[in-house]
C-alpha cells in the first residue's frame, strides 16, 4: 500500500483570496487568466466592484474567467450589479448579450433596469425588458407592459408584449388588446397572438372567480 500517502493541508498561499479590493481590481486586468479568475472570485459579493466586473466581462475572452465574473456579479445580487450588466445587453457580441441576459434574469434587482431597457434602440433588448416586467409581483408589471402597447412600433416587440401580457395580465387589459388589434388590422400574426393572450387572461380571471366562489 506504499504508493498511497497522506499529506496534511497547508495554509493557503498568498493569492487573490487575501488581497484588498483595490489590488483585486488591478488583478482583474492582469495578463494572466488565473490571476483574473482569482480576482473575480474574490470580488464576488463586493458591490463596489460590480461596475469593474461588468466592464471586464465586456472584454474578457477566457471562458472560465467570464464564468467567474458572472458568478461574482450574481453574488452581489444588488442594484449595482443590475445597472452594471444592463449596457452589455446591447453588445455586438451575441454570446456576451446572452450572458448578460441570463445574469439579469437571475438577479433580483433586474426590474430596476427594465425601464431603461424599454427605450433601447435594439428591439431584442426591449423584448427582454418586457420579459423582466412580466416577472414583477402583483399587477404592476402587467400594467407597465400594457402601457408599452400604446407606444411600441416594432411588430415583433408588440407580439412579444402581447404574449407576456397573456401570461400575467388580467381582464383590466383586454380593452387595450382590442385597441391594438384595431390599429394593426392587416397583421394576422399579431391577431393570433392577441386572441391567444385574451383567452389566457379570461381563463385566468374565471379561475380566480371560481376559487373565490368556493371560498364563499
Amino acid at each position: 500500500m506504499a504508493p498511497l500517502r497522506r499529506r496534511v493541508s497547508e495554509a493557503p498561499t498568498a493569492s487573490a483570496a487575501t488581497l484588498d479590493v483595490d489590488a483585486l481590481l488591478v488583478a482583474l486586468d492582469s495578463e494572466d487568466a488565473d490571476a483574473r479568475r482569482g480576482a473575480a472570485l474574490s470580488l464576488a459579493g463586493k458591490h463596489e466592484a460590480a461596475a469593474a466586473l461588468a466592464k471586464r466581462l465586456g472584454v474578457e475572452r477566457d471562458r472560465s474567467v467570464r464564468e467567474a465574473i458572472g458568478g461574482a456579479l450574481l453574488r452581489c445580487a444588488s442594484e449595482e450589479s443590475a445597472h452594471a450588466i444592463a449596457p452589455l445587453m446591447s453588445a455586438d457580441d451575441a454570446t456576451l448579450r446572452n450572458e448578460a441576459r441570463e445574469l439579469l434574469h437571475a438577479l433580483p434587482h433586474a426590474e430596476l433596469v427594465a425601464e431603461a431597457l424599454l427605450t433601447a434602440s435594439d428591439p431584442d433588448v426591449r423584448m427582454f425588458a418586457i420579459e423582466i416586467l412580466a416577472t414583477r409581483k402583483g399587477s404592476d408589471g402587467a400594467a407597465r407592459i400594457a402601457e408599452t402597447l400604446a407606444s411600441e412600433r416594432d411588430i415583433n416587440v408588440l407580439a412579444h408584449a402581447v404574449e407576456q401580457l397573456g401570461l400575467v395580465g388580467t381582464c383590466a387589459q383586454l380593452e387595450l388588446l382590442r385597441a391594438l388589434e384595431a390599429r394593426w388590422p392587416d397583421e394576422e400574426f399579431l391577431g393570433f397572438a392577441i386572441a391567444d393572450a385574451r383567452e389566457r387572461m379570461q381563463g385566468r380571471t374565471e379561475s380566480v372567480r371560481g376559487s373565490a366562489d368556493q371560498v364563499d
Partner: peptide, 24 residues
Amino acid sequence: DELRGSIEFNQTSIVDRVQMLRND
C-alpha cells in the same frame, strides 16, 4: 489502519473559497 492512515480528512465547504484553496 494502513488504508485509514493514507487518507487525509479535513473540513471544507465547497462554497468557501479560502477553505478550498487551502487544499491546493
